[in-house]
């Protein structure tokens, strides 16, 4: 049975698209078949982060409106065979999404994939609403910072009221993905700690992604960080999170970069 997962946050710039790409790739790396869908119509970026920007022919809007079929619009990843991307439209606006169209696309994808990961746009408008609408579970991407935590709280409220699952009277499973975490600054008292955010939002923790230059390097290259550098600290955190999504119990840690003096000295390359 396919799982529909929404990656959401309310606030922009906290790492939704990065996390969608990384979690999608990580799940695919474990052998699951995965499709990542960009719901940010008009401001698509998942294609760029995944390195597929030059391969987009048809998009979500074309499929929603019946101008193309799913197989024409899906872009298969060149690195991991079981990973596909359904890009958003760059030219249309978000009003082109319709409730019936999105539902039909999600239902069709359920027959093809183990995981359907919906990358929500920022904000709480139409695109964000459609991204969360059919979800079975939600990953709330949050930075340890006041405005991000506040917006996540607002999104949690919407997940509990505006989704199909909520309307059926069921509880939406919501998991916290804390990104850009800096354990040193948190320990110094200048950044909210993991426990602070958990206590305030009171949802279970999926993973802690440490702040790392590897994330930017990977997006420069157009690769999910888990594929660009699987042994880097953020990649290990995402790979652990993906295994937790699959039901495995893995001890929660904040991975840190391994000190590789000679590796860094001689092996450094511009990304």
């Amino acid at each position: 049975m396919a799982e529909v997962l929404v990656v959401t946050s309310g606030k922009g710039g906290v790492g939704k698209t990065t996390s969608t790409a990384a979690l999608g790739a990580a799940l695919a790396q474990t052998g699951q078949s995965v499709v990542v869908i960009d719901f940010d119509v008009g401001l698509r970026n998942l294609d760029l982060v995944m390195g597929a920007e030059r391969r987009v022919v048809y998009d979500l809007i074309n499929v929603v409106q019946g101008d193309a079929n799913l197989n024409q619009a899906l872009i298969k990843d060149k690195r991991v065979e079981s990973l596909s991307l359904l890009p958003a439209s760059q030219t249309r606006d978000k009003d082109a999404l319709t409730a019936e169209g999105v539902e039909r696309v999600i239902n069709e994808l359920k027959g093809k994939f183990d995981w359907i990961i919906c990358d929500s746009p920022a904000g709480i408008e139409r695109g964000a609403y459609f991204a969360m609408r059919h979800a079975d579970l939600a990953v709330i991407v949050t930075n340890p910072e006041v405005s991000s935590v506040r917006d996540s709280d607002r999104i949690i409220g919407l997940l509990d009221s505006k989704t199909e699952k909520a309307e059926r009277g069921e509880t939406m499973e919501k998991l916290l993905l804390l990104t850009r975490y800096d354990p040193v600054r948190a320990e110094r008292g200048d950044m909210l700690k993991v426990d602070d955010v958990l206590e305030i939002l009171s949802i279970p923790l999926l993973g802690i992604i440490p702040e790392s230059p590897e994330v930017l390097k990977a997006s420069n290259l157009g690769s999910p960080v888990t594929l660009a550098n699987p042994i880097s600290a953020p990649s290990r955190a995402y790979l652990d999170a993906a295994r937790r999504l699959r039901g495995e119990t893995i001890e929660m840690t904040v991975p840190s970069e391994k000190k590789r003096f000679f590796g860094n000295l001689f092996g450094r390359r511009a990304a």
């Binding site: 409220g157 948190a186 200048d190 909210l192 602070d196």
Partner: peptide, 24 residues
């Protein structure tokens, strides 16, 4: 003085209010 406790306190207060307004 560290700033994180202030962030935590402000958030707890604000969200208690906002959850009441927005229905959570």
């Amino acid at each position: 003085r560290s700033s994180a406790p202030a962030a935590r306190e402000r958030l707890q207060l604000l969200l208690a209010h906002e959850r009441a307004v927005f229905g959570r």
